[in-house]
């Protein structure tokens, strides 16, 4: 693929496949690594697009089975809140 600089992986933070490849070459090979160094998944959608794309890409690129490629940890406010948590004031 020659147009990796035109392929957007993370739409919220404008991260291209070329940047992902560059970071992988520096040794940042997990989703959490890439999030910290490139901000993938830190935007308003919280990785709902790039998480899936990167999971597939990292599995192929690094020859891992896809089950072994973890993506990000979803953070509040993204997730729905259970009625029980509202009543009890629970965490997460």
């Amino acid at each position: 693929m020659s147009d990796k600089d035109k392929i957007i992986i993370c739409r919220c933070e404008d991260v291209t496949l070329e940047q992902i490849e560059d970071a992988i070459a520096q040794g940042f090979t997990t989703f959490e690594d890439l999030k910290r160094i490139l901000r993938v998944g830190m935007g308003p959608c919280q990785g709902n697009t790039c998480g899936h794309l990167l999971q597939v890409y990292l599995a192929q690129r690094l020859r891992h089975s896809i089950e072994d490629v973890k993506t990000h940890r979803p953070r509040p406010m993204l997730l729905g809140v259970t009625l029980k948590d509202i009543v009890e004031g629970g965490d997460e």
């Binding site: 509040p76 406010m77 948590d85 509202i86 004031g89 965490d91 997460e92």
Partner: peptide, 9 residues
């Protein structure tokens, strides 16, 4: 623990 809470918010 490093949880997030709604009380914090």
């Amino acid at each position: 623990q490093t949880h997030s809470s709604w009380q914090f918010l």
